Computed example of a mutant assay.
Amino acid sequence: MMAHGTLAAAEPLRLVAFGDSLTAGYGLAATDAFPVQLQAALKARGHDVVIENAGVSGDTTSAGLSRLDWSIPDGTQGVIVELGANDALRGLDPAIAEASLDKILARLKERGIPVMIAGMRAPPNLGKAYQERFDPIYARLAEKYGVPLYPFFLDGVAGQVALNQRDGIHPTPEGVKIIVANILPAVEAFIATLRPPG
């Protein structure tokens, strides 16, 4: 049914980027953080969106779960979940990360808030056995909940010295630009599902 509503949405689409330091913008000026850059990129492409930065540096999936309800206000129309890097950096049991992410997705589904998952990969130094347990978590959960998955949040940036801060973990402003450019088509596809065409 094609209802061509002449009522253009007056209110911007309200999204929340819910994650750890990679979302929060650790070591960056506030204007260089991922949610700010993503919002600017979407606006440049004609999308009226507001993206709230609900990133907390150091958060594991369990910590994210414990603050979920107060981090995602009522009225949120979509959430980009980016968690798990700290679980992997600490070598935490992937089963814990999966259970916490599962509960986050279940809770947001319960609240009727659509989700897009940004996947993470275990650092190579943790070994193949850990990677084989950790890396597939995101695809499994995306399938279970029928939500879109962006396979690897740091695609094109992980391991690139020039695109990361001195710690080798957190992206520079240039690194964030690349993350945004890479994830943009997936986010556009996600937000296209959040509003009926008008």
Rank of each mutant, 00 (worst) to 15 (best):
A40C: 11
I137F: 00
S57F: 06
Q39I: 11
Q160K: 15
L38R: 10
S62P: 06
P185M: 13
P123S: 02
T23I: 07
N86G: 03
D74Q: 14
K103P: 01
V36R: 15
A122Y: 01
V180M: 05
L22N: 00
V79F: 03
A3Q: 09
A85P: 05
P123K: 13
A24M: 12
E52S: 12
Q160T: 11
L108V: 09
E110C: 09
E188M: 08
A88F: 02
I72K: 01
E98T: 07
P148R: 04
M116N: 00
G84I: 00
G175T: 06
F18S: 00
A192F: 12
M1K: 05
D135E: 09
N125R: 08
E11R: 15
K109P: 01
I96F: 08
T23R: 02
P171T: 09
D32V: 02
Q37G: 06
P173W: 08
G198F: 07
M1R: 07
D59V: 10
D32I: 01
K128W: 09
H4A: 14
P197S: 13
P136Y: 14
L68Q: 10
I137W: 03
N125K: 12
K128L: 12
R14W: 02
I179L: 05
P73L: 09
G127Y: 12
P123W: 01
V49K: 05
T23F: 04
V187F: 03
P12M: 06
P124A: 12
A181M: 11
V176N: 01
K128P: 05
T60W: 04
Q37C: 14
E98W: 02
R45E: 09
G58S: 13
D87W: 00
K43H: 13
V147K: 00
P136G: 09
E143W: 05
A158M: 11
R107W: 07
N164D: 11
I104A: 03
A41F: 07
D32W: 01
A54I: 06
